[in-house]
Structure formats: C-alpha cells, structure tokens
C-alpha cells in the first residue's frame, strides 16, 4: 500500500549550495523537509522517488545529483548524476537522515498519461508499506520575469493542479494535458500522473485530507509542497 504520498518541488535552488551566500526561499526548503519528515514518520518499507527524466527508467539508488552540472566551481566526483528531480528527491531523503531502501524512478518527460498512470498503479505492490515522493513543479511562465516569461494559461493550469491535490482529485491530475504542461514548462506533470496512478489504485481507502504545506510562484515558477494521506490496505 501507499502509506503516504508527498509532492515536493524540484528547482535547482533547492540545493542550498547553489544559491551563494543568500538562503533563497528557505520556507520552500523547510516545507519540503516537513513533507519528507511526514513520509518517513509513516515508517515505510521503501521510499519511492518519482521525477521527470530523459526516459522512464530506474536509477541506481546510490546515485546523487551532480551539483557541478549547475555550478562547475563546486566540482564533481566524476560519477554521472541523477536527473534533477530525482537528485533533489535523494537530497531530501539524505537531509532527513533516511538510510533505508529507496527506489529512484524516472518518468520520461513526454511519457503519455496512460503510461504514467500504469506505472503509478504498480507502485502500491512494491512492498507492504510504500511511501511515494513525487518531485516536480508547475508552470514556469507565471509572469514577465518568470524563466519562461508570461503565458496567460499558466496561472489557471497551476490553480487546477493545486485544486486537484488539495481535493485529492486524482482524476483531475490524470487528465492534465501533456502538451499544455510542456508548453508551460511544467516539469511535474508526468510525476504527478504517476502519483495519480498510485493513489487511485484499486483498494485505496476513501480520500483522507491532503495537506498543502506550500503553494506559490515567488520566482515565476509554481512550487507545491503537499502531503497526501494513506491509500490501500
């Protein structure tokens, strides 16, 4: 079963090393840490990290994010790094002191919703107690200063995602349009649809309340931190 699910953001600036002297968006990092703490408090047998990658594949659980790809001055150990979303998920688990089993599951950025849902539906069976950490973000076109400049479709898209997560409306997540998400640079679409597949698996309990720990787009990119209640039996 899925003992708990969480959604966390995946901007590089989640890595404290990348922002220089300034602690940029400490509240975002704190909310993410709180979400991961909640996941771990559910005593999972395994933590499943899902995030966008070049293709749908699992990665070596001992791999980490290569920060030097973003800040060459930080240097590298020479090992190939994880895709950003998985790397930040691994970083959150490390920061929480988690040393138990983890699965790092990339989902292809352009993976079709049906494939994402199918992948998600298989997750509750991984172990008796599975915690699911979905790493990804909403649009990056929330204003003229946003990385992707302003797109009028961005705010409604992000609002729909936030609403779906708050209301545990997995069907709404499942129906997000990959084309629109891609237009809006919303990196979280595929991972959220894996989450939707996992949390709407047969046998899931009735929707317990989800908790939004952070929702905002302070830098023009929509970030969400959400904890979703247990499912399955």
């Amino acid at each position: 079963m899925i003992v708990l699910g969480a959604v966390c953001p995946s901007p590089p600036l989640m890595a404290r090393e990348l922002t220089g002297s300034a602690d940029v968006l400490p509240e975002l990092r704190a909310a993410s840490a709180a979400a991961v703490s909640a996941l771990l408090a559910a005593a999972p047998d395994v933590v499943m990290v899902v995030g966008a990658g070049p293709a749908t594949a699992t990665w070596d659980p001992d791999s980490r994010l290569d920060l030097s790809a973003y800040a060459p001055v930080l240097g590298t150990d020479g090992k190939s790094g994880l895709p950003l979303a998985l790397g930040l998920g691994a970083m959150l688990l490390d920061a929480a002191g988690y040393v138990g089993p983890r699965v790092l599951q990339a989902v292809g950025e352009t993976e079709a919703p049906a494939e994402c849902l199918r992948l998600g539906a298989s997750l509750p069976h991984l172990a008796p107690r599975v915690a699911l950490l979905a790493m990804g973000d909403g649009s990056a076109r929330r204003g003229v200063a946003a990385p992707g400049h302003l797109d009028r479709r961005a705010a409604p898209f992000d609002a729909s995602v936030e609403r779906a997560l708050r209301d545990d409306d997995m069907a709404a997540l499942a129906s997000l349009d990959p084309g629109l998400a891609s237009d809006l640079l919303a990196s979280g679409r595929a991972a959220w649809q894996v989450l939707a597949g996992a949390l709407s698996a047969p046998g899931a309990a009735d929707a317990p309340a989800s908790q939004i720990l952070y929702a905002g787009a302070p830098l023009g990119v929509s970030y969400l931190v959400v904890v979703l209640g247990p499912r399955g039996r």
Binding site: L13, G20, S21, V24, A140, A146
Partner: peptide
C-alpha cells in the same frame, strides 16, 4: 576564481 561565495544566485535555478 572560485575564492568567494557569490551573494545570491537564482538565475536559471528557479
């Protein structure tokens, strides 16, 4: 040179 930590880095990292 890499001898000083920059003040605040956000560009491209959001």
């Amino acid at each position: 040179r890499g001898d000083l930590v920059p003040a605040r880095m956000v560009r491209g990292l959001a």
